[in-house]
């Protein structure tokens, strides 16, 4: 279980998100929705400390993992990221072979025999439904794959590290509708095995995928979480009129 307490994020002194407190329950899908620029992606990046890589980014507040602060739970940001995988909006496989894309991190994080690695590659590619499409060209460049296939390869690559949490930043928005549908199905099939936190602008997708939902909003120029709850009940009724109108497609 991953949760945040009063998380605030700023870039070069300008606050983009303040006092975000959330809980992502194990094995459930949590969707982060809201208009552009309200700090959803920054929030996601803070969860695996990717903010360390962004110039001028500062994070304050608490992130806990199974009840422990992430600093205690993990020896380093690197350790944290092994357990909290991330999928980006634009598929970003390395310009290497399909095999090498998956192996790269696996090899870095422990000793595996060649047959172990082969087994891991096959199993994660099967998990993302890519095995039948690529098993005869594992040594071809990953850049030869279509966008949707690349995105599934990126998910496979993350799964190979056996993470407990997957962070997804609009994983379908750069794909064509058919490929997007394919990835969405994949995410649905992973429900129960992984804690998934997904940023999406597609409210219908959030409704189809997510168990819980957090609505971000810009209040006085700064992002905040204005609503959090079970997806269905939020869609049916929310105490906050802003949320009601946003979820019904009337604003945002």
């Amino acid at each position: 279980m991953i949760s945040t307490q009063k998380l605030s994020i700023s870039y070069h002194g300008r606050t983009v998100l303040r006092n975000a407190s959330l809980v992502a329950e194990p094995g459930k899908v949590l969707a982060l929705v809201g208009p552009s620029g309200c700090g959803k992606s920054s929030f996601l990046c803070a969860l695996n400390r990717m903010t360390d890589l962004l110039p001028g980014a500062r994070v304050s507040g608490q992130i806990t993992f199974d009840g422990q602060g992430i600093e205690e739970a993990f020896a380093s940001p690197v350790e944290l990221r092994r357990n909290v995988g991330m999928i980006f909006q634009k598929p970003n496989p390395f310009a290497m072979s399909i095999r090498r894309n998956i192996e790269l991190a696996v090899r870095e994080h422990g000793r595996h025999s060649r047959s172990d690695r082969q087994r891991i590659i096959e199993s994660v590619l099967r998990d993302v439904g890519l095995w039948d499409e690529v098993h005869d060209r594992l040594d071809h460049s990953a850049l030869e794959l279509s966008g949707g296939q690349q995105q599934r390869l990126c998910i496979a690559r993350a799964l190979a590290l056996k993470p407990q949490v997957l962070l997804m930043d609009e994983p379908c928005s750069a794909l064509d509708p058919i490929a997007a549908d394919r990835v969405e199905q994949l995410i649905r099939s992973m429900r129960g095995q992984y804690t998934i936190i997904i940023v999406t602008h597609n409210l219908a997708q959030a409704r189809r995928l997510a168990d819980h939902m957090a609505v971000f909003w810009i209040c006085e120029g700064v992002g905040e979480i204005i609503e959090y709850g079970e997806t269905e009940s939020l869609f049916r009724s929310s105490a906050n009129p802003l949320v009601t109108s946003y979820l019904s497609g009337r604003s945002g």
Binding site: M50, E79, F88, L104, E108, H109
Partner: peptide, 9 residues
Amino acid sequence: YAAAALGLG
């Protein structure tokens, strides 16, 4: 970013 997200140092 991809490498960092995969936990590479």
